[in-house]
Amino acid sequence: MALFTQSFVITLFLGAIAAGIPLLLAGLGEQLSEKAGVMNIGLEGMMLFGAYTGFLAAWASGSPSLGFIAGAGGGVVVASLMALLCVRLGLNQIVTGIALTLAAEGLTALLHFVQFSRTYPRLDGVAPLPIWPLSEIPFVGPVLFNNNAVFYLAIVLVVVFSWIYRQTHLGAALLAAGDKPAALDAAGVDVMRTRAMAVLITGALAGLGGAYMSIAVAGVFVPFMSHGNGFIAIVLAMLARGRPLWVLGGALLFGGSLSLTTALQVAGIDVPTDVIQMLPFAMVMVVLLVAGRKAALPQALGESFVRGAR
């Protein structure tokens, strides 16, 4: 049977998007958080908790839309702890982030055990929103213009964040919160509020990314299902050098690499699976070598802000 049919190629591209969108959402969030000076290592936990709350709401209500909202809300719940502990109380951001991730893993596994471990309910999927007539274009149409609402939202967010960072006072305040928080404070802007807001938006985006995984991609929730995507998103955000478009490129590159590895395996390419499986990570390393050399992180990244402290 011929392998590279139109439907096979379209499925590969859709697979790349399915893998890339959660990374894009979480990566945009992490980028925002880092710009404001908060290293959000708890991203994985926010994604996982969003995956759980999103799935729970979608399953209980029968509405994927409510599920996505609940997923974002779940991410905000975890992020609010991050904001309280790191921004307000000034605890170590790395340690707090790891602790929140571990707590989210344990809690979601426990909740899953109580609710779903005997029945494993599955969702029917998310209906696409075709953009006619673009959706009729061969290959490109079914992939880019016949997708679900979260996909379009993620793409729009790239543009919105680019505009905020370049054109608005809010963007300038975020940059100052990460680079010169004392200067921002002297200018009369509340540094803690700025940072807390950034962390909460990060939580919403990571939670939405997690909900996308459980509702739109897998259609099921299982423990630990975020599977390290939060950490990959952190890497993408750091490589993107503050540019949302680069996060988009990195996420699609990683998702595309995953699809390519599947295609190579299905085609029976005579290369050890381990080598093929390295492809997405090797791609990231290449990007790191090319782009990361000039990467500049905010000067106050990871440092808690104490008013008046030198």
Binding site: M225, L258, V266
Partner: peptide, 29 residues
């Protein structure tokens, strides 16, 4: 014909990856 695909290195809990890869294998015939 037998078509073979590994989701990822130790992707034991990767339900999303499981669905994505299985869809691709089904699309391959």
């Amino acid at each position: 014909e037998v078509r073979y695909a590994v989701i990822g290195p130790a992707a034991y809990s990767d339900a999303a990856g499981g669905k994505r890869v299985t869809e691709t294998v089904i699309a391959s015939g």
